[in-house]
């Protein structure tokens, strides 16, 4: 396609990121860019390496390549450092603290800020509660007792407690009923309006392409396509990648 994500200021600039699991290359030479205030999505069928990419950017996995974040290049990203610098990941599995209350989960979201001497988590929590009134209702409840949608809200809310410059969301719609998926995507748009840059990894390509500004398609560990989201939304090859349709039925999808 030859397209590039032209941005005035990049929050995240990943170049030639490669990850190995033992001898298996799970991600090869992936390069992506997220501009300030942008929503960028990485879509692709399952097993394409989307989660691997986020984990490597975050420093949860060893990788080769360069991760430039907020104007500074990290050879080997280290999770705690990335969090301190304003990068936050909402993982696919949510990774909540199930036996702790909703409020404690949120407080821990601000742990790194607290450590750096910024004791403003009370105010941030009010902002999160404003965004997710449901969490306020349930604040004394244990996280493990929440419903699927509430858990996802808590996971996002907990990440917001760190006041991230870049929020990375891994499959936020996974396993959620359509109504809740819509709610989650509404919030993603809302976050962008508040100036948070977002990197969104999704299997739910349609929803992701609808909210995103720019999109990358990942297939078997490599970037296969990229372009402005609205253009990819109409690209038959995206559907092909997902369903193995050979482009036959895109007329039906368009309808």
């Amino acid at each position: 396609m030859g397209a590039h994500n032209e941005v005035s200021r990049a929050v995240l600039e990943v170049s030639n990121l490669t990850v190995h699991y033992g001898k298996v290359e799970a991600l090869s030479n992936a390069s992506i860019k997220v501009g300030e205030g942008q929503i960028v999505t990485v879509i692709g069928p399952n097993g394409a390496g989307k989660t691997t990419m986020l984990s490597a950017v975050m420093g949860m996995l060893a990788s080769k390549g360069q991760v430039g974040f907020d104007g500074q290049i990290e050879g080997v990203p280290e999770v705690e450092r990335m969090v301190a610098r304003g990068m936050n990941l909402v993982p696919e599995k949510r990774e909540l603290f199930g036996e702790m209350s909703v409020e404690d989960n949120l407080v821990l979201g601000a742990f790194q800020r607290y450590r750096m001497g910024k004791r403003d988590h009370g105010d941030t929590m009010e902002e999160v509660y404003a965004l997710f009134p449901r969490l306020k209702e349930r604040r004394a409840q244990l996280a493990g007792t929440l419903s699927g949608g509430e858990r996802q809200m808590l996971a996002v809310g907990r990440a917001l407690m760190a006041k991230p410059k870049l929020l990375m969301l891994d499959e936020p719609s996974l396993g959620l009923a359509p109504l809740i998926v819509r709610e989650i995507f509404r919030i993603i748009s809302e976050l962008r309006r508040r100036g948070v840059s977002i990197l969104l990894v999704e299997q739910n390509a349609r929803a992701a392409l609808q909210v995103a500004d720019y999109a990358y398609v990942l297939e078997t560990g490599a970037i296969a396509m990229e372009g402005p989201a609205h253009m990819l939304a109409d690209d038959p090859r995206v559907i092909e990648a997902y369903l193995g349709l050979g482009g036959k039925h895109q007329d039906m999808l368009a309808g």
Partner: peptide, 10 residues
């Protein structure tokens, strides 16, 4: 099936 795989459209 299409909806399950590609997600719903509003």
């Amino acid at each position: 099936v299409l909806e399950a795989y590609l997600g719903g459209v509003e």
